[in-house]
Amino acid sequence: MIFYALVFAFAAIGAGLMCNLWRLLQGPSIADRILALDTMVINSIALIILYGVLQGRTVLFEAAILFAMVGFISTVAYCKFVLRGDIIE
């Protein structure tokens, strides 16, 4: 039963990633693209965790932590660049 739930979640998150990609390519403003990238990172974390559950292994979760941290820092750095024209002042 968990397997079917996993299949559903994979499909839903995959469709979500396609939506994000569309917004990333389409996005009229820079803020739109940043938001789309950030959402993509969060969805990818969910995908990694679900793959870990499917495999029954927790090794991938360290990758998920790194993904979360790098995603957050890069979003903030990009916004900072838009706001100030510089990242490290």
């Binding site: 039963m1 968990i2 739930a5 559903f8 839903a12 998150i13 979500g16 990633l17 917004r23 969910a46």
Partner: peptide, 22 residues
């Protein structure tokens, strides 16, 4: 059952968030 429900809810909300984006 509980785990399956949580996984389905998770996939659903992740999709709704991305759908709202477009």
């Amino acid at each position: 059952i509980l785990i399956s429900l949580l996984i389905v809810a998770g996939g659903f909300f992740a999709f709704v968030g991305s759908f709202g984006l477009i």
